[in-house]
Design a protein around this nucleic acid. Structure first.
Length: 450
RNA sequence: GGCGACGUGGCGGAGUGGCUACGCAGCGGCCUGCAAAGCCGUGUACACCGGUUCGACUCCGGUCGUCGCCUCCA
């Protein structure tokens, strides 16, 4: 179990991960609002936190990963209205689509995937605690958080309350004591078709309260790592932190981790900008190994360029590792592997530096390719597993069909007769069938084209 | 305007006060009938201007530029 350091957004510094409970780590990451299929940008935190869990598990921690699903939200009501369907039905369908889409990433599921709609009692209880402590107030069925009642408000995202834009949101502005305040509970509106009973009225939760409630319910207050996209730092995470701090008298999380934005055309990938690539579409044209490799090729905190060229680069890395893997044998790796594995895991332990880790994998592959004798795959397997790329070691699936074998045999005899024209023509036919021939020292070999 | 991050070779993308990141692409060579795969070699890279230092791409200050947040947003 080595020392893990992570960048804490709250302090801006690398911080040693010291578990609340020895040997155990609780991680909560904000998941999607389900009003549409997710795009690749939405998949980044799913990948980052799933892989962080793998690293911590590898290091011997007992890790619980929670990624929520926001299934009650203004955007869902709006999208459901457009489609003329019940919002609960749209949310259910999109939740199922989200699960199916992220399943295709091949990283497994989080340990818990709570739904806001199923967490109402916890939400109501937390709002109740905030009201009791005067950190919130009810007005005409709405409940608002009193931002200025929290002296620490703004610390997570580094903002000074007095210098913040005090943008009025049109509806409800008049009900707030202070424009900075935000809704914990919204009274049911005629155009909204889901609502729950609460002591202060029929309605539904605001955006931020659900995460505080769900995280507390599943991980307890003061859990280890809270994560999500950097765009959530304010106001979402700031508000979450404030709610729990004021409602429970304790910090929600010990450390805050934020991933950088996926960019397309030099700008953040976002629906509002129209520069999105939906996850299912991306996975229809690129295999998941390429996508995962693409994600780990950049540091999680930095922006990452998504385009044909960067995906092609990732595909090249994948090819090279797979190619090397074909020549490996089962069992322990040679002595030189130990040093590389050490470098690999220290890179990950130092703020989860996956690009450096990937460079170590490349060095391992080069070393293996240089080696004359049989090379055991265990060391590489150990590293790739943590990057979610153990699939690169899978031995090749089905062999070529008989027709291709037939062509290969014909080509071999043409070559024996030094009939290069026929031989090359047959090689083209084999290629057309999806296979390539390599004439090695042990004779020709058929390899699936990638 | 406020807060924050960042500017690295053709592209992507790490990192460090003096020593090869890495990948993709390119170029030369080995191997091959030719290829493929692999191997070997190859690129005066660190936005600009000052400063600190024996020495800065790496620290400090400034300039310019880019991106993110400040409103829904992974």
């Amino acid at each position: 179990m080595r020392t893990i350091r992570l960048h804490d957004s709250a302090t801006g510094e690398l911080t040693v991960l010291e578990p609340r409970d020895p040997g155990r780590i609780g991680i909560y990451a904000c998941g999607p609002t389900v009003y549409d299929r997710i795009h690749v940008g939405n998949a980044r935190p799913y990948v980052v936190f799933s892989l962080l869990k793998r690293l911590l598990t590898h290091e011997g921690y007992d890790v619980t990963l929670v990624i929520n699903v926001t299934d009650v939200n203004d955007k869902i009501y709006e999208a459901a209205r457009v489609r003329r369907m019940p919002s609960a039905q749209l949310a259910a369908e999109m939740t199922a689509a989200y699960v199916a889409d992220t399943d295709e990433l091949g990283l497994g599921r989080p340990d818990h995937e709570p739904l806001a709609s199923r967490s109402i009692p916890g939400i109501v209880a937390l709002i109740g605690a905030l009201l009791e402590r005067d950190a919130a107030y009810a007005v005409e069925g709405d409940v608002y958080f009193r931002v200025r009642s929290d002296p620490h408000y703004g610390e997570l995202s580094g903002r000074d309350v007095d210098q913040m834009d005090q943008g009025e949101d049109v509806e409800g502005a008049s009900l707030k004591e202070d424009p900075l305040d935000f809704a914990l509970w919204k009274a049911a509106k005629p155009e909204e078709d889901t609502a729950w009973e609460a002591p202060w009225g029929h309605g539904r939760p605001g955006w931020h309260i659900e995460c505080s409630a769900m995280a507390e319910e599943l991980l307890g207050v003061g859990f280890d790592v809270h994560g999500g996209g950097i765009d959530l730092a304010f106001p979402h995470h700031e508000n979450e932190a404030a709610q729990t701090r004021c409602g429970r008298g304790a910090e929600l999380a010990r450390l805050w981790m934020h991933n950088g934005m996926l960019q397309m055309g030099g700008e953040k990938m976002a629906k509002s900008l129209g520069n999105i690539a939906r996850l299912p579409e991306v996975l229809a044209t690129h295999d998941r190994d390429t996508l995962i490799t693409f994600f780990v090729s950049g540091h999680y905190r930095q922006p990452l360029q998504f385009d044909d060229s960067t995906m092609a680069d990732a595909a090249g890395r994948v090819r090279r590792i797979r190619e090397a893997a074909r020549r490996l044998v089962g069992g322990p790796s040679p002595a030189w592997s130990a040093d590389l594995q050490e470098r690999f895991f220290s890179a990950l332990a130092d703020d989860f530096n996956t690009p450096t880790a990937l460079a170590v994998v490349a060095a391992w592959v080069s070393e293996a390719n240089r080696s004359a004798g049989a090379v055991g795959r265990d060391g590489l397997a150990d590293m790739l597993q943590v990057l979610g790329l153990e699939t690169l070691l899978a031995t090749g699936g089905d062999g070529p069909p008989e027709a291709v074998h037939e062509l290969a045999r014909a080509r071999a005899s043409a070559r024996d007769q030094r009939d290069w024209a026929t031989s090359d023509r047959l090689r083209d036919e084999i290629a057309a069938a999806g296979w390539s021939v390599r004439d090695g020292p042990d004779g020709p070999e058929l390899v699936r084209r990638t």
